[in-house]
Design a protein around this nucleic acid. Structure first.
Lengths: 336, 336
DNA sequence: CTTTGAAAGTTCAACGATTCAACAAATAAA
DNA sequence: TTTATTTGTTGAATCGTTGAACTTTCAAAG
């Protein structure tokens, strides 16, 4: 492994001169610079990031904490984030929480130990108003940008969010305009703020349409296909007379739709189904799903932008991006 | 930032003792260890990875080079890889190539500069028999495991592969057994060995069924939904009389199926379609796709295993995992 | 009552790049 | 000729951690 020292020996100048020449410092003659750079290249010199990191206290490393990369929503975010970070000379470390607080904690600690220059976190939501590891981040003053709605325990960090409430509102409004009045809602994880916001958008749209939200149309689901399946079974079991189902996300919508189809119900003729998120599967599902497109790519890019501002010591403010309704074949006017 | 030195001052012992105690060295008494560990915890000590890396010449870092994280196949691999790596105390850096050689080169160089302890690469396939970066990796002796079939330019590295040929052979055999004789094949990227292997499996199965492979049933596609769409249009345009289509992967199959459905053809009644890969979308597609399940999770785990052997200086051999046919609704006997 | 040996802890130096303060040489100004 | 200024270069210190060698203490073995 070639070190500065080795180049110095070959070139007959001090290590310092080499270091400065390679970094284009102002006080090295153009001649020397050229000579040294050529030599370094020829010898195959590659700087040692550990040594640089130790000396300069900066690692050019971002830590990215997400629930799971297999969730298409996050895959897209990672995709964009990695791309932009590389353009800026940063590398990206990945940690998956599977929505378990202890895994989140473990991942964040590892990143802090690596002295990452910045932390992007999609939080694991909990009921508690405090979370130790978030206090540690604050104490360490590691620049941090949240991906998603901030909960009480992380409310002091800037966040890049999606306008969840408004987007969900548009979905419900769309169903109402098609003529639906009895719209079931499949809720998300009870601790997740985004799930509450989406639910709130649904309720607001109903009220504006002079339909009083009724708990008998609300079913507890979650965030996975299985959660959607279970909620749908529950709904069928209760002989619910809903003419449409609005799900908290696409996976739940898929689980729901699968179950309804198995019961020989036709979508959208017998019942409409709408999702949220616009994952690939939603587009190519048996019945292409009406859903909401989240600007995930732009969200990631904006988050990196925000991070750079944080790193440069500037003030930053949380931002919310608007999402867009996509009408497909899974929604139609109710029967009769 | 708390350093060993700070703990040492508080505890009234040498820095070395602290270091050893925290790492459970044998020559520190249980008492002292407990005392020091408690103190470290209380003071919020987090070791500095840069310093550790500099000193020990090991970064506990893996570099993972893949085409794109948005491709569900790789998402799954990253998922497993990250999990296993963390269990072993390693962090994972991510780089996406988008199948462009220059991006691959750039990513690998960055990882080498970071002195990663190991490199997992899903190669960008090219026609050339040599590739400079791969020679650099070899020169640096960085432990490397390939994910996927090795091409000439990287044939000297151990690889974790899928039995592509055999799996593809099973798909064709399945179609033949259903009674198909005129089976179209949508090929993958021309440079990709895995694509050739799958094609080879198709040809072998045909020959064994005494059907001579005919080029008029072969259409150049690629690896994306759009590629599948284009190949399907081409096929329709040529009035091909195939009763089934076997696609090189699921995305191509989806693009193909979408196009056929738009032409009012019924799947599988009018024409069968089979994919390869078993991505989520295949399972929940309009017509659930017959496909091949690749053991991606196991592949990743085995790749890490192989890496650990490499790191420990043991000899390793490339391995091939078998994939399994999944019969769904998109294939059926031909009409009439 | 020495000798041996293990246990517990210490000291010193090093890893490789960067930065600070200092210095030499060359040039310009007084 | 002297002084000041610019330009190019250097040695030593530093970042936080750890490997290797060394000292001290105390108990067991001879």
């Amino acid at each position: 492994m070639v070190r500065l020292k080795d180049i110095a020996r070959h070139a007959g100048v001090s290590v310092m001169t080499i270091s400065k020449a390679l970094r284009d410092a102002p006080d090295v003659s153009a001649n020397t610079k050229a000579r040294i750079k050529a030599l370094a290249l020829q010898m195959g010199y590659v700087p040692d990031s550990s040594a640089q990191g130790l000396r300069t206290k900066t690692t050019k490393l971002f830590g990215l904490v997400i629930p799971a990369i297999t969730n298409p929503v996050y895959a897209r975010i990672v995709f964009a984030m990695e791309e932009r970070a590389h353009e800026l000379g940063y590398d990206v470390l990945l940690a998956q929480t599977l929505n378990k607080p202890e895994r989140e904690e473990y991942g964040i600690r590892r990143f802090l130990s690596r002295r990452v220059d910045g932390l992007f976190i999609s939080p694991v939501y909990r009921f508690e108003a405090e979370a130790r590891v978030y206090q540690e981040i604050a104490a360490r003053k590691t620049p941090t940008v949240l991906l998603g709605t901030p909960a009480p325990f992380c409310k002091n960090f800037p966040a890049m969010e999606i306008e969840e409430t408004l987007a969900s509102y548009h979905v419900t409004q769309h169903l109402v305009r098609l003529g639906h009045k009895r719209i079931a809602y499949f809720t998300g994880p009870p601790t997740a703020p985004w799930a509450h916001e989406r639910f709130e958008g649904y309720r607001r749209a109903l009220r504006e349409a002079n339909v009083e939200p009724d708990d008998k149309y609300v079913f507890a689901a979650g965030a996975t296909i299985d959660d959607g399946t279970n909620a749908a079974l529950q709904m069928l079991n209760e002989n619910c007379d809903a003419t449409a189902v609005q799900a908290v996300n696409d996976l739940v919508a898929v689980g729901c739709a699968e179950t309804l189809l198995k019961q020989k119900l036709k979508i959208p003729e017998d019942i409409s189904v709408a999702g949220f998120g616009n994952i690939l599967t939603a587009e190519y599902y048996r019945v292409p799903l009406t859903t909401v497109r989240q600007p995930k790519y732009r969200l990631a890019i904006a988050a990196v932008e925000m991070m750079m501002n944080l790193i440069h010591g500037e003030k930053v403010q949380s931002k919310r991006l608007v999402a867009e309704l996509i009408e497909r074949e899974s929604t139609a006017p109710p029967k009769g």
